[in-house]
Simulated assay, not measured.
Amino acid sequence: MAHQFSLAYLTVQGCPPPEQIEIAARTGYDFVSLRPIYMGLPGEPNYALAENKELLRQTRKALADTGIKLLDIELARIHDGVDVKKYLPAMEVAAELGGRHVLSSIWTSDRALYTEKFAELCDLAKPLGLTVELEFVPIASVRTLAGALDVLRSVNRENAGLMIDAHHFHRAQDKPEELDAVPRTWFHFVHLCDAPAQIPTDREEMTRILREARLYCGEGGIDIAAIVSRIPAVPFSIELPNLARVKELGYEGHARRCLETAKAYLAAHPRPQAICCA
């Protein structure tokens, strides 16, 4: 089966959705992963499609004209004081555009709160035909595979999933064989990227690499093949923010290089014929 790839927002962060879709089409991707949930980060443009009807129209047209599909939207964060209903307009837009998944992560240490709110988010997404994918992040509150699995088992929602990011998996020092115990139905897509093998001990440096200095597949020290070989054949969303490469190559050049290097890496590390099932 041929691999399928999505161009994730952070790879071309700051790029408007219609342009991101057109770049994905020109460079050979199958999907895009958009950010129509405004996070209010410094310098972040607001691409909240539910609030900008003209941008939504342009995005819808770009998808129709190019044949690119919407894989997922981000980021439905669970944090102290969050009302997850605020994510509903973005999820409704995602469903309207043919999207499949909503990416979420947890930024509060209150286990009772994040379990309740993640379950509520899944319940809001279910009538829309969307899954909610929990991503553990090394600078967030749920930062390891074990933490994410605890949430998924606790909420017990059929539309809840686990999203593995190669960078985060490596930084969490999780072991690929631990993925064998994860139900296969929890995997819907994977984030691909590389990074230096040495794990930063400084949070600021960890954050800098995570947000702006990830590497092309095969360029760093993550054993990406060991991770993806334990996961069923699902789309690869290339989330590879690298501000220096974007400055050098432009959005399109960087997106193309991301895809070329990912394909070359996967071709050099073919998936085993049999994958252990849970």
Rank of each mutant, 00 (worst) to 15 (best):
D83H: 03
V234A: 01
D180I: 14
M163W: 11
A62T: 06
V137P: 00
V132H: 12
A268H: 01
A8W: 09
L113P: 05
L103G: 08
R111E: 09
R271N: 02
P200H: 00
A146S: 14
F5R: 04
A262K: 10
D72R: 09
I68T: 08
F169G: 09
T131F: 14
F169H: 07
V151G: 10
R143A: 00
A195S: 02
V82S: 09
A267Q: 08
C193D: 15
A8N: 13
T144R: 06
V234N: 02
H170V: 03
Q273G: 14
K263C: 07
K61S: 09
T27C: 12
Y265C: 06
M39W: 11
V142H: 01
E177M: 13
T115C: 15
R26A: 14
H269V: 07
A94M: 03
Y29T: 03
R171W: 01
G28T: 05
E219Y: 12
K117N: 08
D72F: 12
E178T: 14
R245W: 00
G147K: 11
H191Y: 04
A267H: 08
V234K: 13
G28F: 06
K86G: 13
D150S: 15
S33Q: 13
L249I: 00
R26Y: 10
D150H: 15
P36W: 08
L128H: 04
V132G: 05
M1G: 08
E133V: 10
C122H: 03
K69V: 10
A244E: 09
L249C: 07
R26Q: 11
P42H: 09
L103V: 12
N156V: 15
M39R: 11
R171Q: 01
G67A: 09
L128K: 06
A278K: 15
A50P: 03
D123W: 04
L55G: 12
D30K: 14
F189T: 05
E205I: 03
A268C: 04
R26C: 14
R157Q: 10
T261L: 15
L128R: 05
Q273K: 15
L145N: 08
R214L: 01
V137N: 00
P241Y: 03
A226I: 01
A119D: 10
D110W: 07
F31V: 11
L215H: 07
T66S: 14
T131K: 12
S141T: 01
Y9M: 12
E248I: 00
V84Y: 05
I78F: 07
I106D: 09
A119Y: 10
C15P: 10
I209S: 00
G67F: 07
V182T: 05
K247F: 05
C193W: 11
L124I: 06
N52W: 01
A197S: 08
P89T: 03
L121D: 08
H167C: 12
P89N: 07
E116H: 11
G99K: 03
G14T: 11
G99R: 02
G40K: 00
Y251L: 13
G43I: 03
V132W: 08
P138Q: 02
I222W: 00
P272N: 03
P17S: 13
H168P: 01
G253M: 00
A160G: 13
R208L: 02
G67H: 06
Q273C: 15
H167A: 07
A119V: 10
F5M: 05
V182S: 09
F118L: 12
D83L: 05
Y29V: 06
P138W: 01
E135M: 03
E92N: 13
F236I: 05
E205A: 04
E178P: 15
E19W: 14
F189C: 06
